[in-house]
Write a protein that binds this DNA or RNA. Structure first.
Lengths: 226, 226
DNA sequence: GCAAAAGTGTTCCATCTACACCCATGT
DNA sequence: ACATGGGTGTAGATGGAACACTTTTGC
């Protein structure tokens, strides 16, 4: 068997909707290379753990976050992407509801923070590329799966759902058409609760009916937003 | 740094349209484990080569095929997927025009063959899972990118394009609607050549106009087949 | 002349798009 | 009373789905 000394790592791109904008979870590195740079949470896979386990473990260790939704994103393997050794990174794409988690730096990280995607710092390694790939995944996925609901709180405002779509898809959306479309899917419950955000007419709260969604899906229904 | 001894491999799922059906390229393993089983072509990544280079090299070595289209598919990393050591495999999805290549077994492979997807043998390792993932990618991709043309010969029959779509999407397609839709994209040239296949009315040959496709794409045109 | 595959149009329905005014609240 | 965000309907255009007969060849 060929001699080979390649390390295997995992990294996670964790998105969250917070303060009316789309955020990504970053850590401040505590060790060289790229000490003090911001980077995606991640680290080396341990001998006998699955890749998913490695991501979840690193996330928990470095940020104290456990994710609501996760899937594999892409693997990055350019020979010189890490200045120390050859490291290939299998990256994951995750969504969380930021209010559900108290982030906290720990092992290997001297700080953790949510960053508005519009105001990102420089990132370590090739993490900018990874984030770019994740953004594309998010854009695509949003249109054919109801993943928006994994980013919002359980009870949310329609205007937040709409804002989320506009931010991610980077385009204007017609309020009436959007609302009509989403409601026609019949996967939302309109609650008898109103919320006033200080100005304007108080808005109704909605809740995503996951069970209903899976029932409809089994019957052939396709979620699809242009 | 953590001690870690995980090997990194690449495997390729190569599809080709041949004899009016969809085929996948397999090799017969020459070494244990799974000696004499059929498997996807692939092998360990060499220290300083890129992942793409590794796939192309292994494919060339084991099958004598060079691909027309390739993209990364998914990474498989379950701890016990290889009975020898821990091996994670980064898999690739490729499309070729089978008539353009003379397949030939070589290093590590005692045989190479195209297999109709409907008549597959048992596969080594977790390759059945990999193939399943590749099939899903093919199905999705077919609907929003003109990858069908990478599977057909340069000059092809409309009926083959249609058959290809029906095979991959596993459903019937209305001939008239399909033709109308595809032609409306304005990315095919109808040639002044007819081909008779023994029975029935001779059919016109078509050619995919790649340049035209990229021009339209740049202008915002979206390829989309339901 | 018959079997086999190629080629071709129209109608109906569902969905998308564009678009503007009133409502409920806080200050 | 005004500023702010929430909530709602309609008409026209577009695209998708359903559907059957004629044409050209080989045998």
């Amino acid at each position: 068997m060929i001699r080979q000394n390649i390390k295997v790592a995992v990294d996670a791109v964790v998105f969250g909707y917070k303060d009316k904008s789309l955020n990504v979870l970053l850590i401040k590195r505590n060790i060289d290379p790229f000490k003090d740079s911001w980077a995606l949470p991640g680290g080396l896979v341990v001998e006998n753990e699955s890749l998913e386990h490695a991501v979840e473990r690193e996330l928990k260790e470095e940020t104290n976050v456990t994710v609501d939704y996760m899937e594999q994103l892409y693997s990055f393997g350019t020979p010189d992407r890490d200045p120390r050794n050859r490291v290939i990174s299998i990256t994951y794409f995750a969504l969380v509801k930021p209010e559900h988690h108290k982030i906290k730096a720990d092992t290997d990280a001297k700080d953790v923070a949510w960053f508005d995607l519009q105001k990102l710092p420089e990132l370590a390694f090739d993490h900018k590329m990874i984030l770019q790939k994740a953004k594309e995944r998010l854009q695509n996925k949003l249109t054919y799966e109801p993943i928006g609901f994994d980013l919002l709180e359980d009870k949310f405002l329609f205007s937040d759902l709409e804002r989320l779509y506009m931010i991610i898809l980077e385009k204007q959306i017609d309020r009436r058409n959007f609302r009509k479309k989403i409601l026609s899917f019949d996967i939302l419950e309109e609650l008898d609760e109103k919320v006033s955000e200080g100005r304007g007419r108080p808005a109704n709260l909605f809740r995503f009916n996951k069970k209903q969604y899976f029932t409809l899906k089994r019957e052939g229904f396709l979620f699809d937003i242009k």
